[in-house]
Amino acid sequence: MSHHKVISLAEAVRRHTWDGMQYASGAALPVGSDAIVFGRELLRQGRRDLHAIFHCNTQQLNLLAAAGAVSRAECGFSGLEGFGFAKGLGRAVQSGAVALEDYSNLAMPLRLLGGALNWPFVPATVNVGTDLEFRSAFDPEHSPNRDKIRTVTDPFSGRTIGAFSTLQPDLAAIHVTLADPEGNAIMLGTEWSRFELSRAAKRVILIADAIVETDCMRQFPNLVRIPGLLVEAVVYWPFAAWPQASPGMYDGDEAHMKAMNDALGSEAGTAAYLADYVDGIDGVDDYLDRIGRERIAALSRGPTSFLLDPYRRWILPHADALALSREGAAA
């Protein structure tokens, strides 16, 4: 495993992120798998002025916006489903700190697909004729706006249709259930646009709940939706999507989802949350201790835990996965 791609979370952010970059994540459901811990580390390292691209808002974008790290955002859904409005993101948008460009849940993966295929634009038949077409947060002075979704002529029918700009973000931090040291990955549960995002982004970092032997990927090659050749680095971090869910691994932490969202609704609450769950965290084990070992055990015994059964034999022990992280960070 001398040529593996596993590095520490801190090293991944240090090497592959910068202020003002286009940063993509949140490619699963707003309450599902997302590399939330990557956003925590972006804040720890003081990244600012990010242009965030999220298929759907998650607690990561909610946190980044509340903490002042994002100046622009594009997403297809801005709520937190059953947990209500995203209070940190909402506060940032209402204050003018974040310009939020709104598209639909179909438009975002289409734009990522266009980026993955290196198309100049994506033909659009959705969002056309609505405020999504004619209102732009990036150019609010012009309404109706004719540049956000432009028009093209279908060369076959002569019909006028819309055209989306494509997305090719500088970096995508993608949460996966299982990754091997070479960067091959399996995602359990809803995939949403993580497949398209992994092909559209200029660089991809995987944030994995577990590291498995490569024999696992050889046993289930049809499930390897993100191959290692697309991946810059792999970060091992259990409960990386917490307080959201990772099917097969852990359920969503409903109590913390509510408490986190409430905290992000104010500057004082955000500062307290950052002190406890961002700046105050010293490594993986401290992070897990902060969640609480009893809570971790309870969340890990959920109704989806059986989904992990076919893969358990290949999962590396915690100490071995951490050793890979240290080795990769030192290389």
Rank of each mutant, 00 (worst) to 15 (best):
V93E: 13
V37D: 03
E101V: 04
L89H: 08
F85I: 02
F83H: 04
G39Y: 12
A73N: 08
E81M: 10
A67T: 10
A69P: 00
A66M: 13
F83G: 04
E41C: 13
A65I: 14
R40S: 10
A65M: 05
S71I: 04
V37G: 07
L50D: 07
R48C: 10
V70N: 13
A65N: 03
L80M: 05
G84Y: 02
A99R: 15
R91G: 10
K87E: 14
Q94F: 12
F38A: 07
V37R: 06
G96I: 15
V98W: 15
E81G: 06
G82I: 11
L64K: 02
E74N: 03
G84I: 04
Q59A: 10
H51A: 15
G39L: 04
A99W: 02
C75A: 01
R47V: 15
A73G: 11
F77L: 02
A92T: 09
N57E: 07
L61S: 10
F83M: 07
F85M: 08
F54M: 00
V93T: 09
G39T: 12
V70S: 11
V37K: 05
R40C: 08
Q94D: 08
F54Y: 08
E41T: 06
V37E: 05
F77E: 00
L89W: 13
V70T: 14
Q59M: 13
K87H: 05
E81F: 11
A92Y: 05
Q45R: 13
I36K: 01
R72F: 00
V93W: 03
G82L: 02
H55A: 12
L100W: 08
L61H: 09
R47M: 13
I36S: 03
A67R: 07
L50M: 02
I53C: 06
A69G: 11
Q45W: 15
V98P: 00
I53M: 06
G96Q: 15
A52L: 03
G79V: 06
V93P: 04
F85Q: 03
S71D: 11
I53R: 01
R48M: 12
I53T: 04
Q60L: 07
L43W: 12
D49I: 11
S78D: 04
A86V: 04
R48A: 13
C56R: 01
G68L: 12
L50E: 02
A52E: 00
L50H: 09
H51I: 07
V70F: 08
H51S: 03
F83W: 04
E74I: 12
F77C: 00
N62G: 07
V93A: 12
L63T: 14
Q59G: 01
H55N: 09
A65K: 01
Q94P: 00
G79C: 01
G82N: 04
N62W: 03
A73I: 10
L63V: 15
